[in-house]
């Protein structure tokens, strides 16, 4: 095992990217065990943007923009492995379908969304029109849905489609500005986003047309992830990970790493995969 990969103890963790490394914070219930936070992986020459977690093989996946690539590493210790290194310009958001064993990512220069198997094979562009600044992307594996944000200054939007790119629809377009972060919680079927322009965190049940403001007055949210009753977001101005109680709509905790630099993507590394299967997994 590689010595700069600190194996993660069992349990749920938050994983986030900050300046050439992927950090982790263990969770105790919904509490961030800040004292036990440390680097999972040092990648000192890289600018890591998106992070995603595969609960089946316990692998963290990330996008990187200095030598544009997508890589993975086992969170229990192991060498980082590059999965995709060609034909990427600016890969940003990344999401895993742990049932279908695929990954999805946005490229903000190519302005498209791609899918590939977790080993990088069977790569295919699934959305390549009407995208200006695609950023966050998340999956809903049991239902086979994909959600993403586009922070296009002229017409920001949150969209959805099936995992093959079909049945594409705009979910949210009004009162949006810079939707940088997006998260889907399969337990509550809630899609939530953090907007660095409206400074709000909002949620919707896709397909119900409802929309609820969770909290406002955020400074500069970038990444966001859900875990149970809480939402955790990274903030570019505060250089911190902030916990928000989704029901109460209040900030319940803040973790500010010693290092004061921008924090990018964040994801929840669940102790166990949520139950369920989808069409692609059995076919």
């Amino acid at each position: 095992p590689r010595p700069d990969v600190h194996p993660l103890p069992p349990g749920t963790h938050l994983l986030f990217a900050q300046s050439g490394r992927i950090e982790h914070v263990p969770m105790e219930g919904y509490e961030m065990k800040k004292d036990a936070a440390k680097a999972l992986l040092h990648l000192p020459e890289k600018v890591i943007i998106g992070v995603a977690y595969d609960c089946v093989e316990k692998m963290v996946y990330w996008t990187e923009i200095t030598s544009p690539s997508i890589s993975k590493a086992n969170i229990q210790g192991g060498e980082p492995i590059v999965v995709i290194r060609s034909d990427l310009d600016s890969p940003e958001g990344i999401a895993i379908d742990h049932l279908g064993r695929t990954m999805f990512w946005t490229d903000s220069v190519k302005d498209h969304i791609e899918v590939a198997s977790l080993d990088g094979s069977q790569r295919r562009v699934i959305i390549n029109s009407d995208l200006v600044n695609p950023r966050a992307i998340v999956t809903d594996p049991p239902n086979g849905n994909l959600y993403w944000t586009d922070w296009n200054r002229d017409a920001p939007k949150i969209e959805t489609s099936h995992m093959d790119g079909s049945n594409r629809r705009v979910l949210v377009k009004d009162d949006l500005s810079l939707p940088n972060g997006l998260t889907y919680d399969s337990q509550s079927s809630m899609l939530c986003w953090a907007d660095a322009g409206t400074h709000k965190l909002e949620c919707t049940h896709p397909g119900h047309g409802d929309r609820r403001k969770v909290i406002e007055g955020l400074q500069y949210p970038f990444g966001i992830t859900s875990f149970g009753k809480n939402i955790y977001y990274t903030d570019w101005r505060r250089d911190a990970v902030v916990a928000v109680d989704r029901q109460v709509g209040t900030e319940s905790d803040t973790f500010q790493p010693q290092k004061r630099t921008k924090i990018y993507g964040i994801t929840t590394a669940y102790a166990q995969c949520p139950s369920g299967q989808n069409y692609c997994a059995v076919n």
Partner: peptide, 30 residues
């Protein structure tokens, strides 16, 4: 800094503002 025990490689862990990299030799994004 931190030393990686097996390889002996030393990585700076708390570079000055705006700097990053193994020896803080690079600039941050932006």
């Amino acid at each position: 800094c931190a030393q990686i025990a097996v390889t002996g490689q030393v990585v700076c862990t708390n570079c000055p503002a705006g700097q990053t990299g193994m020896r803080c030799q690079m600039c941050e994004d932006g």
